[in-house]
């Protein structure tokens, strides 16, 4: 009887810990509202800002979950998003067609993702290092696209109608629904989790590492393409610095959202969304509190770092190992 009670307690504890990212998001929302009331902020503008600033990251990060589930990571996502936005912007300027622009964005990002994955698969290269190389190549490609006709930017006009939160939310909902379906209800997701959890075992059961790695990069590529499209719509002027923060913020977002960096069966497709919105709300809170303080930007970053480590620590309490993790 005692053993049953202990097991129940333990599984309750595990459940609470696994909910830490969601609890964290709720706490941040409460803090945001409380501080916002005290500071008398414009809540409508505030919530719009949070959505506007979170959605692109959430979409790209949701697609990237497929790569992280395999225990790999891709450091070139930001550069890929920029190339996608540049290609889409140039096509829109040439044709005036939004549909073509969207297709181009997705095609460009898929091409970049496939190069990474195929290189890694065919030549047995470590995926992370391949993506480091791709990051340099893609940055150079985007620079060529931006400065190709002289000047330092690609200016896109006529898309202001698409720059609203409902369009973004529609993209987010549809893409997330597709990802959730593939990740949770198809063998693609199951096999990717198996590969991430125990690659040797998975291989021995006949799961092809190369096939599912390529599929993961394809899913990520679609996410990057949609993110690139929304970036082009939002920014309206694309320069070499556009989307520069996406690459590393994806790591922060998905880990903040409870995704184990080693991937495997504990991977959560919703981690990207929770993490993306959490870090943006945290940024908003820090902006409200510290904007008038000297050196505020540095202090805000220190607070973000501590918060990030604390959240990840709490969220991973279920998975402590005797040895140091690698």
């Amino acid at each position: 009887m005692d053993k049953v009670k202990t097991n129940e307690k333990f599984s309750k504890r595990q459940k609470l810990i696994s909910l830490t990212p969601i609890i964290g998001l709720v706490i941040l929302l409460i803090l945001y509202v409380v501080i916002g009331i005290i500071k008398d902020i414009n809540f409508k503008a505030g919530f719009e800002a949070i959505v506007n600033q979170s959605v692109i990251l959430a979409i790209v990060a949701t697609g990237a979950i497929f790569i992280f589930t395999l225990g790999s990571f891709d450091i070139s996502l930001g550069a890929s998003t920029l190339v996608s936005a540049c290609a889409g912007g140039l096509v829109y300027n040439a044709t005036g067609s939004v549909a073509l622009m969207l297709l181009t964005c997705v095609a460009a990002s898929l091409a970049a993702s496939l190069v990474s994955s195929v290189l890694g698969s065919i030549f047995n290269l470590p995926v992370f290092v391949t993506t480091v190389a791709m990051m340099s190549v893609l940055s150079a490609v985007s620079e060529m696209l931006i400065t190709g006709k002289g000047g330092n930017q690609i200016r896109i006009s006529g898309l202001s109608g698409l720059e609203n939160i409902w369009v973004k939310l529609i993209f987010l909902v549809i893409f997330t629904a597709i990802c959730v379906f593939v990740f949770e209800f198809t063998k693609v997701g199951r096999r990717q989790k198996a590969l991430g959890g125990n690659p040797v075992c998975a291989k021995l059961t006949g799961i092809s590492v190369k096939t599912y790695a390529i599929l993961a990069f394809i899913m990520a590529g679609v996410g990057i393409g949609l993110g690139g499209f929304l970036t082009a719509v939002r920014a309206s002027t694309i320069t070499s610095g556009t989307a520069s923060d996406i690459g590393m913020n994806i790591f922060i977002a998905i880990v903040f959202g409870g995704m184990p960096i080693s991937g495997g069966p504990r991977s959560r497709i919703y981690a990207a969304i929770i993490g993306s919105f959490s870090i943006r709300i945290l940024s908003q809170i820090l902006t409200m509190l510290l904007a008038a303080v000297p050196g505020a930007n540095g202090i805000a970053q220190i607070v973000r770092a501590i918060f990030f480590l604390a959240m990840v620590y709490l969220a991973s309490m279920n998975y402590r190992t005797k040895m140091l993790p690698r």
Binding site: A235, T237, T239, T242
Partner: peptide, 9 residues
């Protein structure tokens, strides 16, 4: 701020 998107945010 290094790009248009950052300025907008």
């Amino acid at each position: 701020l290094t790009d248009a998107e950052a300025e907008k945010a």
